[in-house]
């Protein structure tokens, strides 16, 4: 549905996106991850036709965004960063305007707006000027606007940014419900969000893709993947560390402590499953284990390992 090939964008001497290629199919929810300034928003702005690429090609449902702009834009619903809207209009007027611009005639426009309002639970604030709405409602007006024409492609720049947990949950449920018949790209800083709704995660850094896979595959790249963490009284900790290290499948053990308990994390040698051997050991040694769990992996750790911090980037730029 979305095909991006060799996409590049310069701002003066700065290269924001450098030769990015990507295909997104129907049914995929692609999570766009990356540090600030990595090129996420710039890429989205190019897919939706707000910015022109310096080089490369983008097609949406077969329409080239540069030569067949209107057809491509008609197929896309877009929530720009910060969900901009005309503040002096009420939510109802604004959605009616969007419906009219999208070419819906009066009766159908009403049905479309009503459906969109229902999905985003906007009914209570429909007749208030958008500038008087809370952040959560403003964001939902932006979402309502993006899904109004039931587009085959949905691009959302930080759809849950600034929402409270309940609002996040409802936006995520909405995205999940639409996912099967659409190609969706969302950008986010929240790694938990990738786990919650994305079928595929793409991490970009300095304008190029540095990782592309299902959330599970990304987690498998974490050094915490399949590691076992257990907490037990400090008195038993030293002995436990020694016993754990002696296990053949264990590559290393790390110890930390808080609230009067010791927390040990045993890292497996590559591919090994630790949880059974460790629990058998704990039983044999009669440790007073309070918690024990196998780690699926930590996305934030993967994220940090494969992207560069902006401080590091600034340092690299100076030298």
């Amino acid at each position: 549905m979305i095909e991006i090939d060799g996409l590049t964008r310069h701002f003066g001497s700065v290269t924001a996106v450098a030769g990015l290629s990507l295909k997104v199919a129907r049914g995929e929810v692609l999570g766009f991850l990356g540090p600030n300034g990595a090129g996420k928003s710039t890429t989205m702005k190019m897919i939706t036709g707000y910015l022109a690429p310096s080089a490369g090609r983008i097609t949406v449902c077969g329409h080239d965004i540069e030569t067949d702009t209107l057809a491509a834009q008609a197929a896309v619903g877009y929530l720009p960063e910060g969900a901009p809207a005309y503040g002096d209009m009420t939510a109802r007027q604004f959605l009616a305007f969007i419906a009219e611009v999208r070419g819906f005639k009066s009766a159908e426009a009403k049905t479309r707006v009503a459906a969109s309002v229902e999905k985003t639970e906007l009914a209570p604030v429909l007749d208030q000027p958008i500038e008087t709405l809370s952040k959560g409602f403003k964001r939902r007006v932006g979402v309502a606007q993006a899904i109004l024409h039931d587009p085959p492609v949905l691009i959302m720049d930080e759809p849950t940014d600034g929402l409270d947990p309940n609002q996040k949950h409802s936006v995520r449920s909405l995205i999940r419900a639409m996912a099967p018949e659409k190609a969706i790209i969302i950008s986010t800083h929240l790694l938990e969000e990738v786990d919650a709704i994305c079928t595929r995660a793409v991490i970009i850094d300095r304008g190029t893709i540095v990782a592309d896979g299902t959330p599970g595959e990304l987690l498998a790249r974490s050094r915490y993947h399949n590691a076992v963490t257990l907490t037990l009284p400090p008195a038993q900790a030293d002995a436990a560390v020694a016993k754990l290290k002696a296990l053949p499948a264990v590559a290393g053990v790390e110890r930390s402590g808080r609230n009067g308990v010791a927390s040990l994390t045993a890292f497996p040698k590559s591919g090994a499953l630790l949880i059974e051997t460790v629990s058998a050991l704990a039983l044999r040694e009669s440790w007073a284990v309070q918690e024990m769990y196998a780690e699926p992996g930590r996305l934030d750790e993967v994220f940090r390992a494969i992207t560069t911090s902006d401080a590091a980037r600034a340092k690299a730029a100076r030298t």
Binding site: Y50, L70, A71, Q73, P80, G82, R102
Partner: peptide, 14 residues
């Protein structure tokens, strides 16, 4: 300034 430029230029209007 308000960012609605991004909205209006990404709607299917020449």
């Amino acid at each position: 300034r308000s960012g609605t430029m991004e909205l209006i230029l990404t709607l299917p209007v020449p």
